[in-house]
């Protein structure tokens, strides 16, 4: 990108054009692991958004003080701190969901998407732009997780947000259990990534964008 982009564009880029999961293929572990229901996907998305926003905020505020070769240490320290805060908050206020997410809340620490935003954007740009970027990436991440969560929950359990959406005839022993099991996660994501690539290829051919 040669010319300076506006905050809004930076935000939109994170949600759509450069979606962290579907386009950049970052942060795959939680994407696969916690999307067996929409509820889990949304909570995970919000926790990660909180962490990326705080990490970008702190990094870009301190960007002139951070010495280059200790920057990774500082990123990791910041991220780990806010992940712990998010984890404690989830445990205190939505205990049931936090139990289901289990180790994947602390694992946000090693979500490459977050450290990547600190390295690529926050350390170089101002606070406003970094925040716009963080919100864009966070919401893009949540969006991708939700798509998977919706598909897998409907097909795997016949429910959406724990409410039944498919007829009883389907639920009565005919749910695609495989969708809520690990293989279902890989297959669904594979197909979704394929569809996204297809749409993007068409868009590029049509001379849009």
């Amino acid at each position: 990108m040669a010319k300076e982009v506006s905050n809004l564009e930076q935000f939109k880029d994170g949600v759509l054009g450069n979606n962290p999961v579907l386009v950049q293929l970052l942060g795959m572990c939680p994407t696969l692991a916690v999307t067996n229901s929409l509820e889990n996907a949304l909570v995970m998305g919000m926790a990660a958004t909180f962490v990326v926003v705080m990490s970008n905020l702190i990094t870009s505020t301190l960007r002139n003080l951070i010495k280059p070769h200790v920057r990774i240490l500082i990123f990791t320290l910041t991220i780990a701190t806010f992940v712990t805060i998010a984890d404690l908050t989830l445990k205190a206020y939505i205990f049931e969901v936090s139990k289901k997410l289990g180790a994947f809340v602390p694992l946000i620490i090693v979500n490459c998407m977050i450290i990547c935003r600190a390295e690529v954007v926050a350390i170089k740009k101002g606070v406003a732009k970094s925040l716009a970027d963080a919100f864009g990436i966070g919401i893009g991440f949540t969006l991708a997780l939700s798509i998977l969560g919706v598909v897998r929950e409907i097909l795997g359990s016949g429910t959406l947000m724990n409410r039944q959406v498919l007829p009883d005839a389907f639920l009565d022993g005919h749910t695609w259990v495989i969708m809520v099991l690990p293989p279902g996660a890989f297959l669904t994501l594979g197909v979704v990534v394929g569809v996204v690539n297809h749409v993007r290829a068409r868009g590029a051919k049509g001379g849009a964008a």
Binding site: I178, P182, F186, G190, V191, G194, N197, H198, A201
Partner: peptide
């Protein structure tokens, strides 16, 4: 074409997980 790269890798991983 649209499955080349990540797409097919994920599908293979799915079958492996199966």
């Amino acid at each position: 074409k649209c499955l080349q790269g990540a797409g097919i890798t994920l599908l293979v991983a799915g079958i492996l997980a199966l």
